[in-house]
Amino acid sequence: MSKSETSIEIRNLYKIFGPDPKAWVDPVRRGMSKEELGNSHGHILGLNDINISMPAGKIQVIMGLSGSGKSTLIRHINRLIEPTAGSIVIDGRNILEMSEDELREFRRRGTAMVFQKFALLPHRTVMDNVTFGLEVRGIDKAKSREGAMRWIERVGLKGFETRYPSELSGGMQQRVGLARALNNDTSILLMDEAYSALDPLIRTDMQTMLLDLQKELGKTIVFITHDLDEALRLGDNVVILRDGSIVQQGDSQEILLRPADDYIQRFVKDVNRGRYIKIDRIMEPLNGTEAGSLPRLALGTPLEIAVKELSDTSSSAAVVTGAGGRPVGIVSQRSIMAAL
């Protein structure tokens, strides 16, 4: 399967809930706050001027606490929620201008979604749930069974095809949800807090499975979560939302090393930084340092591994090597400690 070439461009997106949302877009653009809009005018500001470019074939994480608008945002991408203003361009088409029929086609072939509470069809077996998307497209069940079977095996549910969702545990149900989405073979995968309802251990398993799958599939994945660890682990790129506005976006390194404000600082405080920050970010130029005797670390090594390596060899610095073992920089124990 080839990598997805579908990118998602969200531009100046606003969502206001209330009896007359359109009327309040301009005041909000001019800077009216969420509180003022809510308290004095009875409208709720759901999303405020959202701009995100989601690159093709990557995992884009959108993180925020409840009420931050993250679930509202992901529902704009397949237009389960209509925006008040703005544009979302996917494959060169503004999906907000699609007619009802075009939108249905786009949902059938362009996107697949995994839900927080699984949202499986309780009256259908695992197999019939997984083939649901193709059935809606009008593809014969007999034909789609074979492909569906592959996905059921891939998510580790072989032997459960004829069971009903109510007979499965939460983790297994979400595997069905994932298989159902993957079976549609879409370039975009939307995951709305897909793992939030699962136990921590199962959640880690599912994250690993998603990362493995992504290595093969290279889909454009939008992943919603309220868990920073999950965001940092999965996200090639992370957007942090608060009260409907973007507070910061960037890769995990940037968010950990340069949190945009106190709000994010508070989140970041409890995270195991050593696991997510890579030595690339803190290495210094070689400047002709004698590198011969120092230990070597490859680019992309997380700090916690680097620390272990340094203390094992009891040296105060290491040479960072790039492709082919060529030295590209140097990291010192001191700079690692500072970053941690």
Binding site: L80, E105, R107, A112, M113, A119, F132, G133, V136, N184
Partner: peptide
Amino acid sequence: VDKEVLEAADAFGCS
């Protein structure tokens, strides 16, 4: 009928 299930039906492009 559960709202979530209906949303899933919409998301998969049901008429």
